[in-house]
Simulated assay, not measured.
Amino acid sequence: MNVLKLTALFGLALCFWACNNENFSISAKKTVIFDFESSEDAGWTGGVAEYAPLTPPDSIKLSIQRDTLPTGLDTTKHALHVYSRNIGTSQFTYIKKQVGGLTPGNTYSVILEIDLATNYPQNTPAGMSVLLKAGASLVEPVTSTDLKFNLSRGVGESDGTQMVSIGNISNGTARSGFVIVNKQNFSKPVSVVSDKNGAIWLCVGIESGYKGPTSLYFDRIKATISQ
């Protein structure tokens, strides 16, 4: 039997095995994009953590909802609008979404790319002291009973093992006005193991050292999940 026939037979055998093995994937990469133009993308939820214990919860006024982009941008397009108010020295607001369709128990590398509409000028307290964190986890991101956030996120510009810092929320200009800026963790992907159902949690956090409201519009969130 010549080499050509052996190659053909091997290719057929591989194809047959792949078609009958549900854990086999031709591509080791999964890309998920949320642009919030469809109501199906509005399944992101979230919470608030790391605030002072005596803070009245209703004073934070957390709101996470699909909305149109603000005036100054294309108001025919939609985004995920996240609003919260920090009345203390620090606060961590986060949004989360579970993504499935992965191989159970596999280790994945996750990169999040975010198009963010923000109106906070650079070199201002809000623009510089409110930071973004991005990452992924096996367990659901939640706030514990003692108001702590359950993922390793690092503090300030430092990175955690499950979330990393991707910069501040400034619009990159010296003036207020909404601008869409791109934030991502290309240089420091997060490693995560999928659960028994082949799912992981994506998480984006807003770490605020600014006393006052923070209002941001997530125009697009793209997750690249690779083996």
Rank of each mutant, 00 (worst) to 15 (best):
M1S: 12
N2C: 08
V3N: 11
L4F: 12
L4T: 10
K5L: 14
K5M: 11
A8D: 08
L9S: 11
L9Y: 06
L9V: 05
G11Y: 08
A13R: 08
F16Y: 11
W17Y: 13
A18C: 14
C19N: 11
N21Y: 12
N23C: 05
N23I: 08
S25L: 10
K29V: 14
K29Y: 03
T31C: 12
I33E: 13
D35G: 02
D35F: 00
F36D: 13
W44C: 06
W44T: 02
A49G: 01
A49P: 00
E50Y: 00
E50W: 04
A52I: 03
T55I: 05
P56H: 02
K61G: 00
L62K: 01
T68Y: 08
G72W: 00
G72D: 01
L73H: 09
D74F: 00
T75V: 08
K77D: 03
H81M: 09
V82W: 04
R85D: 05
N86S: 11
Q91L: 15
T93C: 14
T93F: 01
K97E: 05
K97D: 00
N106A: 15
T107G: 12
Y108M: 08
Y108R: 10
S109M: 06
E113N: 15
L116F: 10
A117L: 05
Y120N: 10
P121Q: 10
Q122E: 10
Q122S: 13
P125F: 05
A126E: 11
G127Y: 03
S129P: 03
V130L: 09
L132S: 05
S137T: 08
S137N: 12
S137H: 08
L138I: 09
V139H: 10
P141N: 08
T143P: 05
D146Q: 14
D146W: 06
L147K: 15
F149P: 04
F149C: 04
S152Q: 03
G156A: 02
D159C: 11
I166C: 09
N171I: 00
A174D: 13
R175E: 14
V181T: 13
Q184I: 02
N185W: 06
K188Q: 13
P189N: 10
P189G: 07
V190L: 01
V193C: 01
V193P: 01
V193W: 00
S194A: 12
D195N: 15
K196F: 09
A199T: 07
A199Q: 11
L202D: 03
G205C: 09
G205Y: 02
I206E: 12
I206W: 10
E207D: 15
Y210C: 05
Y210F: 15
G212V: 11
G212S: 13
P213G: 11
S215R: 12
I225S: 06
Q227G: 06
